[in-house]
Write a protein that binds this DNA or RNA. Structure first.
Lengths: 341, 341
DNA sequence: TGGATTTACTTAACCGTTTAAGTAAACAGT
DNA sequence: ACTGTTTACTTAAACGGTTAAGTAAATCCA
């Protein structure tokens, strides 16, 4: 069987308390004699003793684990964010439980319930559309929560998002300055707030220059089976406005699919292009594309920091019966723009 | 405070046992009266009671969590595998703890120790080079472990790998059939067994056709800072053997970097090419590249299945004192080849 | 009508830690 | 020599569940 505190204590003729103090590094301040401490340490090492964190968690109420819920782990953007979060979390002493919501609200709710049952210390969530009941409940209960990438304007939650509107506004301005008159805008129907802000940025820039968004140049791609949908949308654009001279993609996925379309149709992509979120292949595929680069590292780090702050706040509150509510952190990060055309 | 079994029991004037039985769905077989069961259920629901899995785990010895250790979460291949593993694990009732080893053996060891301390029920590991002490210890202790992507020939562990040698052999054969005489081979210095097998496949095919692997056409790219290294390797090849007529990439990362190199140098990639592991962009970047597609889904599912088998075996063994050792599963999956040139 | 069985529970120990409170011996100070 | 403090521990309860064993009342069967 796995060795336990009890096992060690009995073998050395000590109490569990003494052993626990030694192994948790409190020997000094708890006045354990040097001789005893060394005996304990030596025996524990010889058994490769590892304290049972489950038991410890039950006692302390902390699991030193944070839960991360993403629409999809395999999406490049999210997996990069996940990596940053994991890295930051680890060197702050936390492990990561990850689950994909697959952009399904019911699944998201179920995962939240599961994570709560497993007593993760806090949750980082890239939410799917409107939240259903569980997100609201998290907030009501004061469960540490940080929302990333998207947020709920109506909810009193901490969030880390990026400056979607301004980034898109600037990129669009650039296209206009380059002489574009007929800019096509491709969006997805998911991630409502995010895509809404991006569209807003584009439209504002267009309007400001006296150009309106031509409905024939606007395509909202349904993300369920987007490979086909984007083809239809692009077909439409090219037949209705053959002299389209610019493309704005509100996510790298659309851009990549568009490049594939251009390639298949033999269209030389010599129009102006812009995309929010950069992927490395752009350099090879479409070196002249203008991009807003997501601050992936900062998103991850800030999210973990914000969460840890909330968790410590919650711990403090549990002790001192102060009930002042935690003031949610709302952070908006900027993308770094890169103009390449 | 969070409601507990005790809380519910006291409020309803019942014992914890009764409440526990009802909430774990054993009301029927434990002869709980319908009336009592309904009272308990109703009250628990009104409190949004969630059993504390930590407490349950301490008792049952299972955490219903599996640990996944990957070199990097953000690598496309691994993140796809992770996604499959998470999905399969979830619908088998398990959660996933993920950590990146960053291909660092010490970090890998540390993660294993941590996962063991957190009492994950089993570990899926994509190992880094030779394992150090912890992997061996896992095996000695009979801790459920499945290795993916790479394996240790000398260790008695379950593994799921792919048929690297044969896939590369067939791809190379194809290049040769297409008339290639001077095929360059690019490998990395990491993932020793994997890259060894791939190289073997290529060399076998070459030898069989009377072609030897020309040392000037072989490049082993050091993965620490590979962006620069691959440029140097390719420079070498093009200066030493300007009439190179084929390229074999032993990972998609090398291929992508090579395309970038070709692009930057203005080299039209009209030679024959092959790569093991497909990424979608290939279609646009280099539509004529021949690929061996990794069975990502099957790797994930098989790994989880194998792990669950071991975990149930371990549970069984804990009960009936039978000590017959678990016979490790060694699975080799095939890639699906796609010849496009 | 009395013993066996079934129903509907309860008691208490246990999982492996942490930690507040207690204690006995040694030591220090006046 | 007596009190007070420090040293080096121990006792026992707690965290929130699960579960083996027990029990009292109701029901069954002959």
């Amino acid at each position: 069987m796995k060795p336990s505190l009890k096992h060690i204590a009995e073998h050395l003729g000590l109490s569990k308390t003494t052993v626990s103090w030694v192994l948790s590094g409190q020997a000094e301040q708890k006045n354990i004699s040097r001789a005893t401490a060394e005996k304990v340490l030596a025996y524990a090492a010889s058994l490769h003793y590892q304290p049972n964190m489950i038991a410890r968690s039950l006692n302390t109420g902390e699991t030193k684990t944070i839960g991360l819920i993403l629409p999809s782990i395999s999406d490049t953007f999210y997996s990069e964010v996940a990596r940053e979060i994991e890295s930051r979390a680890r060197n702050q002493g936390y492990s990561l439980m990850i689950s994909s919501s697959e952009s399904d609200i019911d699944r998201e709710d179920e995962i939240i319930r599961l994570f709560k049952a497993k007593r993760v210390d806090g949750i980082i969530l890239a939410p799917t559309k409107r939240s259903k009941v569980e997100v609201q409940r998290l907030i009501d209960e004061g469960y540490p929560l940080t929302t990333i990438d998207r947020y709920f304007p109506e909810l009193n939650a901490s969030y880390i998002i990026i400056n979607n509107r301004d980034s898109c506004y600037m990129l669009t301005k650039h296209l206009i300055n380059k002489g574009c008159k007929k800019i096509a805008l491709l969006t997805t129907n998911s991630y409502l707030t995010t895509m809404g802000q991006r569209r807003e940025g584009v439209e504002d820039a267009l309007r400001e220059s006296g150009l309106q968004l031509d409905p024939r140049l606007y395509g909202e791609v349904d993300f369920a089976g987007y490979e086909k949908n984007i083809h239809r949308v692009l077909n439409n654009i090219f037949t209705e406005v053959p002299d389209v001279d610019g493309f704005f993609f509100t996510t790298h996925i659309l851009a990549l699919e568009a490049f594939q379309y251009f390639y298949e149709k033999g269209i030389k992509p010599d129009f102006e292009m812009a995309c929010i979120h950069e992927v490395p292949i752009f350099k090879v595929l479409a070196p002249q594309i203008n991009v807003a680069r997501m601050p992936v590292g900062e998103i991850g780090r800030t999210a973990v920091n914000s969460l840890i702050e909330q968790m410590e706040d919650a711990k403090g509150k549990a002790k001192s019966r102060k009930k002042q509510p935690y003031e949610p952190k709302r952070v908006m990060l900027s993308c770094s723009l890169e103009f390449r055309s």
